[in-house]
Design a protein around this nucleic acid. Structure first.
Lengths: 202, 202
DNA sequence: AGCCTAACCGGACTTGAGTCCGCTTGTCTA
DNA sequence: TAGACAAGCGGACTCAAGTCCGGTTAGGCT
């Protein structure tokens, strides 16, 4: 499937040339700021200044700080999403629900470990921000489908995603748990909750 | 057991008279502001002004906004904590771990439903605030003890508490789930995770 | 090519959390 | 009762997110 096509599907209303240029500049500037000074250096003012645009532009383009950071993570998220839709089992279609769920959480924890600070920033920038990020809805739907055989898939999917909340996992690391222990705990939890799956899944 | 004694145990270094008076004034003012204008009216500046103290005093007394709000909730939390330590089973000691855990989450969801806005405010005032609130450590230890028969009680207790995070449940309500559905989902999740318990618990 | 307008731009402004530090006061001791 | 000093006080200050609005411009249309 064509990258360009996917991109178009994702952003239907075409953007004016200057707007697109500023989006790119902002993302580059934000990435640079983060690379150089970590999460603390990544303020909206600094990103706007470094990109040579006004602050208002950032908010028009990305909604809020959380949206700017989410856009930075977009590429990696998209890779995971595509692996889920089009990839090989067990992450992609074809494996039993339980295996797919386990594969998803394993992959997601890899993503989280690689980008914990940014994910945390985008999830905690404002109350409820986590649930407004586009990707959250995707993960949620995916899991709800995998839990279709359980009583309340919608709710259960939210609870499952709670296990990989960035703020929680940052705290677990701070308390000295390592990623191995986190992985094991999440796996066993997912296993218990998704439970014995029907032989095949969508 | 004597209330005063409990209080002393909880706050060993005695407070200067003016400090105690200002604490009371601040809590009263904050409660009033919240009662009148909801969560939006409850800013640190407003509370300080209404209490007739300086802003610095609020931060010295309560650490941050999250701490001020947590102090407002302290009374209700303490009731629940005492019921867990000294109360009747299944909430108090004597019932099997699974029943105690279920009773805890049922009681906690009642508390959460009554005070959702305040709990959410105190949990989301800053990244990681949730885990710094004194009560969180209490709930966590309680659950970890109840999960002692499972592989990683410490981690599991954190994941269980994730199901009652205020921000998540506020979102669930916003999406149209009711408390009944939330209760049922949490109960079935806790049941699956705490699992068949050893016959008695501490 | 020239016009029209919706979209975009940017930076000053508002708001609220959290810090700082010189001044004040409660409390303990003699 | 008086003196010493740790604890407490408060409000001006800093810092960052998010809003607003008058001016500008890309790009479609004629």
């Amino acid at each position: 499937m064509n990258d360009e096509l996917l991109q178009v599907l994702r952003r239907p209303p075409q953007e004016r040339a200057d707007a697109a240029r500023n989006r790119t500049r902002l993302l580059e500037a934000a990435a640079r700021l983060f690379a150089e000074g970590g999460v603390e250096a990544l303020t909206v003012d600094a990103a706007a200044r470094a990109a040579g645009v006004g602050k208002g532009t950032v908010f028009r383009r990305f909604g809020d700080k959380s949206g700017l950071v989410a856009a930075l993570l977009d590429q990696r998220e998209r890779e995971l999403q595509e692996a889920i839709i089009f990839g090989e089992p067990p992450l992609g279609p074809g494996a039993p629900a339980r295996e797919r769920a386990l594969a998803f959480f394993d992959a997601y924890l890899g993503y989280l470990a690689d980008h914990l600070d940014l994910v945390r920033l985008s999830e905690t920038a404002a109350p409820g921000a986590r649930f407004r990020i586009g990707a959250y809805a995707f993960w949620h739907r995916h899991l709800a489908i995998l839990c279709a055989h359980r009583p309340d898939p919608d709710h259960l999917a939210h609870l499952l995603l709670g296990t990989v909340a960035a703020d929680l996992n940052a705290e677990l690391l701070r308390q000295g748990l390592g990623w191995d222990r986190i992985r094991a705990g999440v796996a066993s939890t997912v296993d218990a909750l998704v439970g014995p799956s029907s032989p095949e899944a969508p």
